[in-house]
Amino acid sequence: MVPFEYYVILSLLLFVIGLAGALFRRNLIILLASLEIIMNALIVLFAAISYHTKDISGYLIVFFLIGMAAAEAGVGLTLAVLIYKKLKKVYVDEINFFRG
């Protein structure tokens, strides 16, 4: 049986990698993919908690998280396509049409 701490460390690593991707990349698509990596860190953590406490709630929260991730990707990619139709680029530091 793998100790619970290992899962927490793995989840922490995935979260940090996803956060770095969301902060350092300019491409909106890769930013959304980094948000998926952060969501996967949460999935690992909830499944490990559920496995180690013998409580079913964590597995069900993972199920809901996968649904939420699908919804979030749908909305984010819709906005990316809209921004591309307006500006012909998806680089987040060049999107400034809200500036007055």
Binding site: I29, A33, A69, A70, G74
Partner: peptide, 21 residues
């Protein structure tokens, strides 16, 4: 995830046709 969400990502990447950053 691998069947729906990431395929959606790939569709959008192909649609907006960005080569390299």
């Amino acid at each position: 995830y691998a069947g729906a969400v990431l395929v959606l990502f790939l569709f959008v990447v192909y649609m907006i046709n960005l080569r390299k950053e």
